[in-house]
Computed example of a mutant assay.
Amino acid sequence: MLASAGLVLALGPTATVAQTLPPVTTADRTIGRADAPITVVEYASFACPHCADWHRFVYPLLKTRWIDTGKVRLVFRNLPTPPAEASFPAAGIARCAEPSRFFDAATALFHGQDRALATGQVQPWFDAAVAQSGRTEAQMDACLANEATLTAINRDITAANAMGVDPTPTLFVNGRQVTDRSLGAGNPVPQPAASGLTRTPCSSNVCV
């Protein structure tokens, strides 16, 4: 998995090219029916503990009640936060998973995040995600070294920067940014004020 380290160095500054939420395309990583009446777009970092909270506590409710019943499609987009040596390789590993296994790899990353960041032992964390990715190690290394992987992650970052998205997780429901990151405890209806997850979100500069 040495190729994963290259992601930190290969991703440079991004340019502002868009001012609105980009439409969902086949390049996105999604779960749920494409014709679902509600689309939730999540900008998140695999090194952000608040994103891990969201995926441990909110995502299972959202999936059971709304995604699995055909009412919601969830779209994941990368917005890496410090430490870069953890968030960028993790983003690459998830991106390189088979598209149908993306959320399996993402779940492994979010569930193992606390231990990996607390101990600094990130390789077992990466390996656990690869095991859920549907790829062999050779396939994963080849994908991580592929410029297209870097381009896809940079595309997410560029769009987020253009919209002024900074805290993670940031959520959009049918194109509208919402402040309630708990989504009403799994009910994806925009709320007027933050509730549910009360920890201060991560930013591009700090995640505490």
Rank of each mutant, 00 (worst) to 15 (best):
V41C: 03
N154S: 09
S87L: 08
P23R: 13
D53N: 12
P192T: 01
D141W: 04
W54L: 03
A27N: 13
M163W: 05
Q132A: 15
A52V: 00
A18W: 11
A10E: 07
I38D: 13
M140Q: 07
N187R: 07
G6P: 03
R176Y: 12
A138V: 14
T158L: 09
A108W: 05
V165H: 01
N174L: 07
F46D: 08
P49V: 00
A138L: 12
C96G: 07
F46Y: 12
P60L: 04
T81G: 09
A106H: 10
P201K: 00
K71F: 09
S45T: 04
F76H: 15
T158D: 08
R135T: 03
L79T: 07
A27K: 14
V75K: 09
R115E: 09
G184V: 03
P169M: 02
A44T: 10
R155N: 12
V72L: 13
P188D: 00
D35R: 08
T14A: 15
L109F: 04
A47C: 06
S182M: 05
N154Q: 11
V8K: 07
T149N: 08
P167R: 00
V208P: 15
T30A: 06
A159C: 09
A86G: 02
G112H: 05
R65C: 12
W54H: 11
R199V: 11
C202G: 07
P83S: 01
T168S: 05
T170F: 01
G164H: 04
N187H: 09
F172Y: 07
A118I: 00
A44E: 02
N78C: 11
C96K: 08
G164N: 08
